[in-house]
Simulated assay, not measured.
Amino acid sequence: MRKHGVAIAGAGFIGPVHLEALRRLGIRIVGLLGSTPEKSRAAALAQGVEKGYASLDELLADPDVTAVHLALPNVLHYEYCCRAIAAGKHVMCEKPLAMNSRETAELAALAARSNVACGVAYNVRFYPLNLQVRAMIRAGELGEIYSVCGSYRQDWLLFDTDYNWRVLEEAGGKLRALADIGTHWLDLVQSMTGLEIERVVCDLQTVHPVRQRPKGEIETFSGKNKPAVDREPVDITTDDAAGVLLKFAGGARGVLDVSQVTAGRKNEVSYEIAGSKASVSWNSEKPDQLWIGRRDQPSELLSRDPSLMAGEVRRYANYPGGHVEGFPDTFKQLFRAFYDYIEAGDFRAPATFPTFADGHREVVLCEALLKSHTAQSWVEVPR
């Protein structure tokens, strides 16, 4: 059992994902914070956690808490991050880091001068084969990168009766599909290739400008067989889908398709990276297979197997080949990197996890994408 004591703020879908991953690492969960004291107590009881906090003040005052995981609506991230850092707690925040680049710039600067670790939960980096691709690119096995193409597609908001707080601009921000899932892809490909996105052109699509919101806020993620409920129309200004063209530093090009209205795609992240020596292709619905393309010799299909992977990647692939590692495991490996870094104690050392600076970069990129859609033209991404 590690010495950390963690409190999780947020009892919805992603909060329990954090909790389960932390428990698998032997990290103690001290308490949970829900949207009300009653929900905090109910969540703590349901998850077998000691404390259900009545407020953020109570959570931050708890001397047993050394780190806080934030799994809350986006609009709360900035305030909760600021207050947690001020209380001397390490912070792991769900993305996006905050609602705009002014807030994320402040948080990145605050993290840089603090003596705590501050991370953003871009977990898709930590599929073992994505770490393998990063190692291959760093070793020069793909050569010069020519293009990066791919998609992130889901179907959970396909119908106009599908509803979640994320569809509302005031709760999640002006961008939704692109900010909610597209940023995972954008963070992933930049972390693997080491290339920075310099210019973008973006076209957003709102398939359902009006959605039918259940009275009582029953959410789509609660299940497909939802009971009949009274509904009310609500105007939607956020994007259900997006198409993006990218130009990377050094000349590489990119294409991204994002959708939360693609029937049958439950949570599919995919990419193909083309280089001068080889290409690679991966799909999260088959996370243990990496296709490696060759011009002058047979192409390969690499199965995730620690014995076949780069040395620095093996510690993030915990099961033998043929034993699939998927979505929950990415959080475990992300948190492994985060808490190993904390235990090393040098907060000026290069981070092994996505930082607040990375979270700031993604919000700056989102703002450039929104600006491009509005102008219907190419836009420079501010550095």
Rank of each mutant, 00 (worst) to 15 (best):
H4Q: 14
G10K: 11
A11G: 02
L22R: 02
L25D: 00
E38H: 04
G52M: 08
L59H: 01
L60N: 13
P63H: 07
D64N: 11
H69Y: 08
A71R: 03
Y80E: 12
G88L: 08
R102Q: 13
A111D: 02
R113M: 02
S114L: 02
V116T: 14
N123I: 10
I137E: 11
C149G: 00
C149L: 04
S151V: 01
W156K: 03
N164L: 06
V167H: 02
A171I: 07
I181K: 00
G182R: 01
G182S: 02
T183E: 04
L188M: 14
Q190Y: 08
I218L: 14
I218Y: 13
E219W: 06
P227G: 04
P227C: 02
P233I: 08
P233Q: 08
D235R: 09
T238C: 08
L245Q: 08
K247Q: 09
L256Q: 02
D257C: 06
Q260D: 08
K266I: 12
E272N: 04
S279L: 09
S279V: 05
E285S: 15
Q289H: 09
G293S: 15
S307Y: 01
R315M: 10
Y316R: 06
H323W: 11
V324K: 13
V324R: 14
F327C: 03
P328G: 05
Q333P: 02
F338V: 10
I342Q: 08
E343M: 06
G345L: 08
A351E: 11
F353K: 05
T355P: 00
F356H: 09
H360W: 01
R361S: 12
E367W: 03
W378Y: 05
V379F: 02
E380P: 00
P382K: 09
